[in-house]
């Protein structure tokens, strides 16, 4: 049997990002060569100079949409791809670069570049799902490489990926880590953060900073109210929700809510 005639075609695409999530695929040292046997890597600039055209059975998209050209390019990729999966916080919820969405973009450009007229970027950094239909979102900054393998193998087999959507708290309990929010009064966002990292931060004696974005059915207001009443400043709480996943809907709404109520308090 000719294996290559039946192999599905994979494309890996990059937008504004740090490269870390696509690197996760190259970091699957034990499985990389086996995966490459099962799936044809048709387009993956970081890994191979053999560049092929679409269509693709599976497109993995890293990075956020932050230029006018990005919008056109993600639409072209969508048209060429049967299944499109976002990998990581940038593609799924804007990435750290979406902090510009709360700032004066022109001033941001001037602060870094001497000749702002050379810079072509949008005033916002947004998630891929804001522009095209996305079939599955894999969360994390960076993604978990075992979850990435699960996504690739699941789509190759034509089934839904088995990725838990509960909060980091469950992982902490499973790991046997003592709760850092309860015992040390640290503003840990693990209760509202999507599982996947293995609850590493609390295991290293620090509060979760939400790099996997919101868990399914995350209820942020009670958590931030609790922290605001127990010594966390509004600014600290806003920053805890506003970093790598700042435009994830529930994080964005809550950070904006805290900010506007703080302003109201100041007016009074």
């Amino acid at each position: 049997m000719n294996a290559s005639a039946t192999r599905k075609r994979l494309g890996v695409f990059k937008f504004a990002s740090c490269d870390g999530c696509q690197l996760s695929l190259l970091c699957c040292e034990d499985e990389l060569l086996a995966v490459a046997d099962k799936i044809e890597i048709a387009f993956f600039l970081e890994a191979t100079s053999h560049i092929q055209d679409g269509p693709f059975d599976l497109a993995l998209v890293e990075g956020s949409i932050s230029t006018a050209e990005d919008i056109k390019r993600i639409q072209r990729i969508r048209k060429q791809s049967r299944v499109l999966v976002t990998i990581g916080a940038c593609a799924t919820s804007g990435g750290i670069q979406s902090l510009r969405n709360w700032a004066d973009h022109d001033e941001f450009v001037r602060a870094v570049y001497a000749s702002p007229e050379y810079i072509e970027s949008l005033s916002t950094s947004t998630a891929v799902a804001d522009h095209v239909a996305v079939d599955f979102e894999l969360r994390g900054c960076p993604i978990n490489q075992h979850q990435l393998l699960e996504v690739i193998l699941a789509f190759n087999a034509g089934r839904k990926p088995n990725i838990p959507s509960h909060s980091v708290c469950m992982e902490c309990k499973r790991r046997g880590t003592v709760c850092i929010a309860v015992t040390k009064n640290q503003p840990c966002v693990g209760p509202v953060t999507h599982a996947g990292c293995g609850a590493i931060c609390p295991a290293y004696d620090r509060a979760c900073y939400g790099c996997f974005g919101p868990a399914e059915q995350a209820n942020c207001p009670p958590l931030s109210q609790h922290y605001l009443h127990s010594g966390t400043s509004p600014k600290q709480m806003v920053h805890a929700l506003r970093n790598m996943n700042s435009v994830a809907r529930v994080f964005q709404i809550e950070s904006d809510r805290i900010e506007s109520s703080t302003h109201d308090d100041t007016k009074q």
Binding site: F15, A16, C18, G20, S66, T67, D70, G95, I96, Q97, L99, R100, A103, E107, F108, V109, A111, V112, Y113, I119, S121, S125, C141, Y209, Q236, H239, N243, M244
Partner: peptide, 24 residues
């Protein structure tokens, strides 16, 4: 590569957050 403006959005962040942000 689109610019991401790290030096701009680091302003006003707590210094304790810096290594987590610059890693990105």
């Amino acid at each position: 590569e689109p610019p991401r403006f790290f030096e701009s959005f680091l302003r006003g962040r707590a210094i304790e957050e810096v290594p987590d942000i610059t890693a990105r």
